[in-house]
């Protein structure tokens, strides 16, 4: 085979051309890859590593602070700072996120009509968090709630429970009262 190529008079320029084209291809590939990597690194620059937002795990007081009722009592004390509602029924306490599942506005608790009503697009939720009117596609989210050793209720916003994924069955999504 090697003899055949050396004997062919046209083979030498062809080889040069091929190696030239290969060089061009390799060169452009490296250039494109480097450009893409640079672009990705620049895009990564838009995502900060540190955030200056309130802590996600905090204590809200003993269960006695939240007297329950049959229909569920909605406590709004922690709405403005921590973005949660504490709902206490006769036998359990759970924590609802104040973020509307439609476009993230903060709904208002209308105690007379016993519903959360979102001012942005009119979504309505029962005190259980279940959506029943308006464009919201799914119920409000619940946060992890537990009893700390010092007897206070501890809320962990980094763990959330979504009804439509069946996560409300999770024992950590509510605090059973004995």
């Amino acid at each position: 085979m090697a003899d055949a190529t050396t004997k062919n008079p046209t083979s030498a320029p062809q080889d040069t051309r091929r190696s030239f084209l290969e060089g061009v291809a390799v060169g452009w590939t490296i250039f494109s890859a480097a450009s893409a990597a640079g672009l990705l690194a620049t895009a990564r620059f838009l995502f900060p590593n540190d955030l200056f937002e309130p802590p996600t795990k905090f204590k809200i007081g003993p269960p006695s602070r939240f007297p329950g009722s049959k229909d569920g009592t909605v406590n709004e004390d922690f709405k403005s700072i921590n973005g949660i509602w504490i709902v206490s029924t006769a036998d359990e306490i759970y924590v609802l996120s104040t973020v509307c599942t439609h476009l993230g506005c903060t709904p208002n608790w209308l105690s007379a009509e016993r519903k959360f009503k979102c001012p942005c697009h009119g979504s309505g939720f029962y005190s259980s968090g279940i959506n029943f009117e308006g464009p919201a596609p799914r119920p409000l989210e619940k946060y992890k709630v537990s009893l700390a050793p010092d007897g206070q209720i501890e809320v962990d916003k980094s763990t959330k429970y979504q009804f439509e994924l069946g996560q409300w069955e999770d024992p950590n999504s509510r605090l059973k009262l004995a």
Binding site: A43, L46, F47, P48, L51, F52, E53
Partner: peptide, 18 residues
């Protein structure tokens, strides 16, 4: 919420100082 396109747009989970 801390890695999506909205996070890149508003630089945080909620609209804030950043």
């Amino acid at each position: 919420a801390a890695s999506d396109v909205r996070f890149a747009l508003i630089s945080g989970r909620v609209v804030g100082a950043a």
